[in-house]
């Protein structure tokens, strides 16, 4: 469905942030993109949704194809129309709009009133809390409700691919589990592909079928989630699991070397 081919992104014409990223998502696939702060995960999402220029960024090389057609030169509204929607980081609801208006603005690219109404029902089925809060200003929702609202807002454009930027950020573990369960059923029932950006590798690899791990603007490792979870380096650097505490002092030296291999 989506192929990202060796893209390079430069900010402010000098800072090379993505140094040749390639990734692929199958129809209805669930893919996680992991990495530390500043690895370039969000930039990758921005490149796909075509909003780099707002942030002074520029796609210098490479190609992005969606459903077999290149999209890297399209305006963001055309990309949404083709079926990619994004849930930006940090629960960016429209604060001065009501919950219902937030959802309706997500349907901006659609003209079929009946279809929109039906999909509003669908979103309320997934997120029943939004129904009670329909007329309230979005700013007065709790963090979890806001996250549900922005996912609903992205869903109402009927995307083929939904990109989520750190949906677990700042939410209680129980809520995170709930949201990921809902995402899983959306993926199963609506066949919406999901590209998930996360810092929380444990949740992400548990949720996604395939994972990419980024460091410093490059993809260092990729593979099916089950394999990544078993990988020693991933375990140590991303999942925080260490086998043997006794070896600690010796491991420290090795750790440095191995970590360096990741970061160079």
């Amino acid at each position: 469905m989506l192929q990202v081919n060796n893209i390079e992104v430069v900010y402010n014409k000098v800072i090379l942030v993505l140094k040749g990223i390639s990734l692929e998502i199958q129809d209805g696939g669930v893919v996680a993109l992991l990495g530390a702060n500043g690895a370039g995960k969000t930039t990758t999402l921005r490149a796909i949704s075509g909003i780099l220029d707002v942030e002074n960024g520029e796609l210098e090389g490479g190609q992005i194809d969606f459903m077999g057609r290149p999209i890297h030169n399209l305006d963001p509204d055309e990309i949404v129309k083709l079926g990619i929607s994004m849930v930006p980081e940090g629960r960016r609801v429209f604060r001065d709009l009501t919950v219902l208006e937030n959802l309706l603005i997500g349907a901006h690219t659609r003209m079929d009133k009946e279809g929109i109404r039906a999909d509003l029902e669908m979103i309320i089925r997934y997120f029943p809390v939004l129904k009670e809060r329909k007329g309230q200003l979005a700013i007065y929702l709790s963090g979890g409700e806001q996250q549900m609202l922005v996912i609903g807002r992205a869903l109402i454009s009927r995307p083929k691919l939904m990109m989520l930027d750190e949906p677990s950020l700042g939410l209680a573990p129980l809520l995170v589990t709930e949201i990921f369960n809902i995402l899983r059923s959306i993926n199963g029932e609506q066949r919406t592909g999901i590209l998930l950006v996360e810092q929380n590798a444990r949740i992400a690899l548990n949720f996604a079928r395939y994972g990419y791990i980024m460091e410093n603007g490059k993809i260092m490792l990729d593979g099916p989630s089950e394999e990544l979870v078993k990988n020693e380096d991933v375990k140590e650097f991303y999942l925080g699991v260490k086998d043997d505490l006794a070896k600690k002092s010796y491991a420290e030296v090795k750790h440095y070397k191995r970590r360096k291999r990741w970061l160079s």
């Binding site: 949704s49 707002v54 963001p76 509204d77 930006p88 429209f94 001065d96 603005i105 901006h108 690219t109």
Partner: peptide, 18 residues
């Protein structure tokens, strides 16, 4: 509605296809 959204948060409005 799209205009109010844009006034509220331009970048997110872009992402909504406005």
């Amino acid at each position: 509605l799209a205009m109010r959204g844009t006034a509220d948060d331009q970048r997110v409005a872009l992402l909504m296809g406005v």
